[in-house]
């Protein structure tokens, strides 16, 4: 299994589409910091924006922008990655050279899921480091304190990434299933991206949809795990409004787990039973 993992990782970091995903993410982060620094410089030192920009970019606040960007596009990146990872084996017809080499087909899918997770974690870490570096450069240009180590908490930073990871795991699992069913990269990616939007729309219209679909349950988990006190109460109010009732942590956990493991299990089952009759 370790050698299969290494093989998959080689394909992953060499695949131009994945390098593209990383560069796009970094470009968005770069643009954000350049814009922030540029606007502050344009408005001048007397403007309140100057101090706000300094504060936002100094360590550890510089991590905030990448994490906001990742929470906005993270699941999309995971969907594209997963769709491409599985779909390209169909479009290149490489399953036919891979499958006869191993007895168990499920190994390939398990490794692809693990690699997707690893790639996304690497992308998050690189984005955070890059974002903070850009932040420090921005702060250096504007002048002022670069570091505020007292306000840095690794635990808080990691906790803020939990919803990002949950989102991307759920939607990449669904993408895995759809790509496998449709044997198509495009179908997997389109469904993964459009599905997320449709799910969000559906749960804003129907409390039943909110209870069935994963998005509101991820928000519920977020409210339970990430917030305390008044903030948590406010979050619960919002989530309960979407559900139309209070949903317990364990229920949400089960629903999210069902989406993740259900999609993966179905995908593997489909992959094992399906004929590889070529393109």
């Amino acid at each position: 299994m370790w050698n299969l993992f290494r093989a998959e990782w080689t394909k992953t970091y060499k695949r131009p589409a994945n390098i593209g995903l990383l560069l796009i993410t970094l470009a968005i982060i770069l643009i954000t910091f350049v814009a922030q620094t540029g606007i502050a410089l344009y408005n001048g030192k007397e403007d309140t924006g100057w101090t706000a920009a300094q504060f936002a970019m100094m360590f550890p606040n510089g991590f905030l922008f990448p994490s906001i960007i990742l929470s906005a596009i993270g699941s999309m990146l995971a969907v594209v990655f997963m769709g491409n990872s599985i779909g390209s084996e169909y479009s290149r017809d490489t399953w036919k050279v891979l499958l006869p080499r191993r007895a168990r087909r499920s190994d390939f899918i398990i490794v692809k899921i693990a690699i997707c997770l690893l790639f996304m974690i690497c992308l998050i870490i690189i984005s955070l480091i890059f974002g903070q570096l850009m932040g420090l450069i921005g702060t250096a240009i504007l002048g002022g304190t670069l570091f505020d180590f007292d306000s840095f908490s690794l635990g808080t930073l990691l906790k803020s990434l939990i919803p990002v990871l949950l989102q991307l795991v759920v939607f990449s699992s669904i993408t895995l299933l759809v790509t496998m069913a449709g044997r198509s990269t495009i179908m997997g990616i389109v469904f993964g991206i459009v599905g997320n939007t449709i799910f969000n729309l559906a749960m804003s219209f129907s409390t039943l949809a909110a209870k069935i679909l994963p998005n509101a349950h991820i928000s519920n988990l977020e409210a339970n795990w990430l917030y305390t006190g008044e903030e948590q109460t406010m979050m619960f109010e919002g989530v309960d409004r979407v559900f139309g009732t209070h949903i317990s942590l364990s229920t949400s956990l089960m629903v999210v787990a069902a989406y993740i493991f259900g999609s993966i299990m179905l995908g593997i089952l489909l992959f094992q039973r399906r004929d590889m009759a070529g393109q």
């Binding site: 299969l4 093989a7 891979l98 191993r102 390939f108």
Partner: peptide, 9 residues
Amino acid sequence: RVLARSGGQ
């Protein structure tokens, strides 16, 4: 190399 490793070698 990728194909060999995919077969566990």
